[in-house]
Design a protein around this nucleic acid. Structure first.
Length: 373
DNA sequence: ATGTGC
């Protein structure tokens, strides 16, 4: 049985309310993906925004073939939440920032697991650029106290959220794939498909290891004792059955809603939410992965430089601080460049897709410090 | 997104 190249466009579902900011270009991109051969249905999350050709904040379900380009370059990117053993207020923000120093240089050989991958090994334990970050957070509002009680977790214990991915590895995998096959996707069960899926699996493992090493590296600097509460990928493709149809579910900036609790962070100057997903086929078992960009990276500096200087952008409305030595990046990642997280959470709640567990505020955000002495 | 292009 071949692929239906002349099939009707896939069913498009967008999770949003009248308060959700979604750019027309992102919708257009979503509709473009709906016309890809074999595509059955696509779902836009409330954080939907334009990407390079394909939108970010969306899930795509296809039959018989899948599309590595929809997953993108950062295969395995995701959010890990760690407890830290650190008590809020015990160490000043100054002290936390000083003790942390820079975590941008490669880990020493003896800080890496023996079986860590050789390729792109130097990137393990580093956060990368773009929207990636590691953030100390404090529980601010608890909606499901049982969740904390079951883990003997106090609201005073700081939590660490790590958002990073497979660094250069995922990029190399996608580049190699696009060079050989372009954007037409891969027919399932072919050698090329098996080969991609194997590499994709390696990128997922790399990204998970990377987040673990970042968390452990930070905890060591703070002398904290931590453990992982959750680690969830939002860029991946997986084989699954939806409403009786077996196919391929691509997630691009879409957090899985068919497992345990997940984090949906706002911008670095906004709340983050810990939520329990409610699985639903209509949304392709997916949720927003964050606030979603409102402004393109290129326009942020022009829009904000008259209002704020770089120093001001290192502090947020919560009094938290942002370590970001990259002058362009700090404008690109300013809270104003993102949608308000409450508009995203509201849309997911209204669609019955989440139950809130807790709300967190940022304490210290690490983006990039550079290779200081 | 990316040991960041010419």
């Amino acid at each position: 049985m071949g692929t239906d190249f002349c099939s009707v466009p896939a069913c498009v579902n967008i999770i949003a309310t009248e308060h959700t900011w979604i750019e027309g270009k992102a919708i257009q991109q979503l509709e473009t993906t709906a016309r890809l051969p074999g595509m059955v249905r696509v779902a836009g999350m409330p954080d939907l925004h334009p990407g390079r050709g394909y939108p970010v904040g969306a899930a795509f379900f296809s039959r018989s073939r899948f599309y590595p380009a929809l997953v993108g370059n950062d295969i395995g990117c995701g959010m890990a939440l760690w407890r830290t053993g650190l008590t809020a207020g015990k160490l000043s923000a100054d002290k936390l920032e000083k003790r942390l120093g820079s975590i941008d240089m490669p880990l020493a050989e003896d800080e890496l697991p023996q079986d860590a991958p050789a390729h792109f090994r130097y990137a393990l334990g580093t956060i990368g650029g773009g929207n990636h970050f590691a953030e100390l957070q404090q529980l601010d509002e608890v909606y499901q106290p049982e969740w904390l009680e079951q883990r003997q977790l106090s609201t005073k214990e700081l939590l660490l959220l790590v958002h990073s991915g497979s660094r250069g590895l995922g990029q190399a995998i996608l580049e190699q794939h696009v060079r050989a096959f372009g954007h037409q996707g891969l027919e399932e069960e072919t050698p090329a498909a098996q080969n991609y899926l194997l590499q994709h699996q390696q990128a997922l493992a790399f990204a998970e290891l990377n987040r673990r090493l970042i968390a452990q590296r930070m905890l060591a600097r703070w002398r904290g004792e931590g453990s992982c509460l959750l680690d969830v990928n939002h860029n991946l493709v997986s084989r699954c059955e939806i409403d009786g149809v077996t196919g391929w579910l691509h997630r691009k900036g879409a957090t899985p809603a068919d497992g345990g609790p997940v984090m949906i962070p706002g911008s670095r100057g906004d709340y983050s939410y810990l939520v329990q997903p409610v699985p639903a086929a209509d949304s392709l078992y997916s949720l927003a992965h964050g606030a979603g960009r409102k402004w393109m990276r290129g326009e942020c500096r022009d829009r904000l430089s008259s209002r704020y200087n770089v120093q001001q952008l290192t502090r947020t409305r919560f009094g938290s601080r942002v370590v970001c030595q990259d002058k362009q990046l700090i404008f690109q990642e300013a809270p104003e460049a993102y949608k308000p997280i409450d508009s995203i959470i509201e849309a997911l709640q209204q669609a019955g897709l989440i139950v809130l567990i807790a709300r967190l505020t940022p304490v210290l955000t690490y983006k990039v410090r550079g290779e200081e002495a």
